[in-house]
């Protein structure tokens, strides 16, 4: 799969300009929120923001700019694998854990996009595979390069190191 066929590298500047109501409208058009009313989206976003606060405290991080949650929501709500607001809580914990682990090698905006690629294309929605296998590989590659990898570099690296799909791990997770 080439990087051009994957819908990443969006313009994050647009999220700064969004008002709350524009955000809810934008989210309403995404697969995760499409069958929800605006008030349901509102309460979901509120719950996600609260989960984010807990995750930030747990991982000793501080949110400096408000774009973080809108950016994360607008990208990950495109996922076909998200089923409940619980998934957001898991995602936020994984995100903040690895953001700290990367020690500033990857900024938030590209990290959200690379993480979405991993979740969708490499993990096929398996959160445990994302957390235990794919994200550590992203960290390894970033430390090897001393910077954020491009999507092409990440794809090549994973083709070499993780040629197998996470079917086996999904099976094991289901089994136990």
């Amino acid at each position: 799969m080439s990087s051009s066929s994957f819908p990443v590298m969006r313009n994050f500047q647009t999220t700064t300009a969004l008002t709350e109501s524009e955000l809810y409208s934008a989210l309403a058009a995404t697969p995760y929120f499409k069958n929800k009313s605006i008030s349901e989206i509102k309460s979901s976003v509120l719950a996600i923001r609260e989960s984010n606060q807990d995750a930030l405290i747990h991982h000793k991080r501080i949110m400096i700019k408000d774009q973080f949650i809108p950016s994360l929501l607008l990208i990950f709500s495109e996922s076909a694998y998200f089923e409940s607001d619980e998934d957001w809580f898991d995602l936020l914990n994984i995100y903040h854990y690895y953001k700290s682990d990367l020690e500033g090698l990857i900024e938030d905006a590209p990290l959200i996009e690379l993480m979405f690629y991993l979740f969708e294309e490499r993990c096929e929605g398996a959160m445990s595979y994302l957390e235990g296998t794919c994200m550590p590989q992203l960290v390894n590659l970033s430390y090897d390069l001393g910077r954020a990898p491009t999507l092409d570099e990440l794809q090549d690296f994973l083709d070499e190191t993780l040629p197998l799909r996470p079917i086996q791990e999904d099976f094991e997770t289901d089994l136990y």
Binding site: R61, M63, F68, D108
Partner: peptide, 10 residues
């Protein structure tokens, strides 16, 4: 943080 960073460690 620049344009692409939103969060920082404490």
């Amino acid at each position: 943080l620049g344009d692409e960073g939103f969060t920082l460690s404490t």
